[in-house]
Write a protein that binds this DNA or RNA. Structure first.
Lengths: 339, 339
DNA sequence: TAGTGAAATGTTATCGTTAACATTCTATCG
DNA sequence: CGATAGAATGTTAACGATAACATTTCACTA
């Protein structure tokens, strides 16, 4: 950015000191009314814009929050961002948004850059798929304010906002078992190292257990979080001899469910007649696809809002506690489960 | 952010000058190999993170780009952001994202804050609905690097990346006229003061003219850019005596079309039998709604990519010209037009 | 062994703003 | 009318990093 008008320029133009100009423009007391007005006038005419970079250097505050999301096209996240925005806008914080593209390496790079930019805090949904938490442990220890949302890393002393994944996953699985009497239920899982992958898998397991159904290894296929992964995972299941195939599919999220639907369609099989299927997220497409998707409705906006609120509290208040905030999701019944 | 390790801390710990530390960590020549290694070691142990704020103050560069979008939930924009991201990530720029929520006031505030944050450039899709361009004229004159995308403000010397709105709008309207023989065609328009609102309206007009159809004032209803607006606008049309009602509706974008569809459904009328309807954007829902929407496919990712590239060129190259970059959209035929 | 030049390191000033302390006004009172 | 408190303004240093210039160190040559 080119040269811009500084306090000193205004001061020189008026024959006063920079300090007086600073005081006038920041509406401090102890400035003569006339002087103040003169300065404000002049500043306007000269087109003065305060330099926040310089201000930040002194104040050690940037009024800036870093947000790292794993995937901007997954409709869930823009909605979360909207929730975050609502809170930060009111408190005059700016958002620096980074998309990690489901790559932990990019995520680390993003976090490092954000820290180096002196953001006042970071909101992150982690793409990490390994169990080595050294990276985040160090971040937290360096007293960087950090709040996880959706995909959390627990046990390192950072707060987290997420929906009750396990419970919801159990509920939707039980719906398949109890309402529809399915016994052969598969799970297209997320990476087990990511909280939501693990939690949703556990919910699925618990539902089976409670109904005394045994888990079939061949029916647990890791699919990642994207459509393509769901497609591939479903193909594997379709390769099983027909008698070994499940009758229902619990998917770790909506994109994976859409991918699986695609594979089912391609194979000439029908939903829900051949396969019942459920998702998780309730993204915008869920009610609109050919067979509307039964899924878990996640209050994304709420997640963003709560996470941002928690972070701002951490930034302001010294004594703010680490917290695990769970937001209740609801089951959204549509046709894909057989209802 | 709490106190962090500075160059000086490292320097003191090792009994050298800050300058040597700076040189070592920035891999400059003229530093003894051993000293350099020692410093790099120490920096790692002490957990040093460079302070970009300080660096920016000296270099007058923040490696940061401001992005202002009118609506983050409109699926078009996240896709644009992805395109921008691709470019900026490679060049090591960070994005500061702001959502103006279709409010010009918020937009101005955002731009001012971004300038004050010393971003190296700004990418913006304007929500402005008034014809007073003083604000942006001043921004451009203050040699802030600025590139518009999608919703542009023209004639003030800023570059712009957008799709061939007028032409595409004309094409889709002509499709209704020539392929389906509709003669009574309405337009749910955007605000006329926004480029895309104006351009798409003009495309619609031109199509009518070329087929010697006269425009009917009652069939031109301003609907804004959102679903709710489309719903309301369509209601107005449905209030007309049935004989005065149009047979086809050209909408300024997809959300407006969805809103209109809702109103049509509520009135117990059928698409495309009672009303043919077209959109503009081809957002994620378009192929999925009850009657799949015939619309204009906008290469959002491409728009983002090109806009970001142009901006980076402006930032780097001194002699970069103002440019109007038009990207070709394509007509996406589905069922809502009667095909 | 003194002299030389390049490499290594150090010092000072600067970016734009503000905190903390210092000085100069000015109005009011005894 | 001088003293004085309080308002108005000014000066200096600092935030952390770096550019520009200054000094020291050291290997090598004449």
């Amino acid at each position: 950015m080119g040269k811009q008008v500084t306090l000193k320029n205004i001061a020189d133009a008026l024959g006063v000191s920079t300090m007086t100009v600073s005081r006038a423009l920041n509406d401090r007391s102890n400035v003569d009314k006339k002087t103040k007005e003169k300065i404000i006038q002049k500043a306007k005419i000269m087109g003065y814009t305060p330099n926040r970079v310089a201000k930040s250097l002194v104040s050690r505050k940037t009024q800036t929050i870093g947000v790292v999301i794993p995937e901007i096209t997954h409709a869930f996240f823009p909605e979360v961002v909207r929730g975050i925005e609502e809170v930060t806008y009111r408190s005059d914080y700016q958002l620096i948004l980074t998309n990690a593209n489901e790559q932990f390496e990019r995520e680390q790079h993003a976090v490092n850059t954000l820290r180096s930019q002196q953001v006042d805090g970071i909101l992150i949904s982690s793409s990490q798929t390994v169990e080595d938490y050294t990276f985040y442990r160090e971040i937290v220890n360096s007293n960087t304010h950090l709040v996880f949302f959706d995909r959390c890393i627990q046990g390192i002393g950072a707060s987290c906002v997420h929906v009750n994944d396990r419970e919801s996953s159990e509920l939707i699985t039980r719906h398949l078992i109890e309402k529809h009497q399915y016994k052969k239920i598969a799970h297209l899982s997320g990476p087990r190292e990511v909280t939501i992958g693990r939690e949703r898998y556990m919910g699925y397991q618990e539902a089976l257990e409670k109904s005394n159904l045994t888990e079939n290894r061949e029916w647990i296929v890791e699919a990642g979080f994207k459509e393509e992964g769901g497609y591939q995972a479903m193909k594997k299941i379709l390769e099983l001899p027909q008698s070994d195939q499940p009758r229902a599919i619990v998917c770790v999220n909506d994109p994976v469910a859409f991918g699986a639907m695609e594979a089912i369609k391609e194979a000439g099989r029908k939903i829900p007649d051949d396969f019942a299927i459920t998702g998780f997220s309730d993204e915008i497409r869920a009610p609109l696809v050919e067979v509307p998707l039964t899924t878990v409705h996640q209050p994304a906006y709420e997640v963003g809002r709560r996470a941002a609120e928690k972070l701002l509290k951490l930034i302001d208040g010294e004594s703010e506690q680490t917290e695990d905030i769970e937001i209740a999701a609801t089951i959204q019944i549509r046709k894909s489960c057989g209802c």
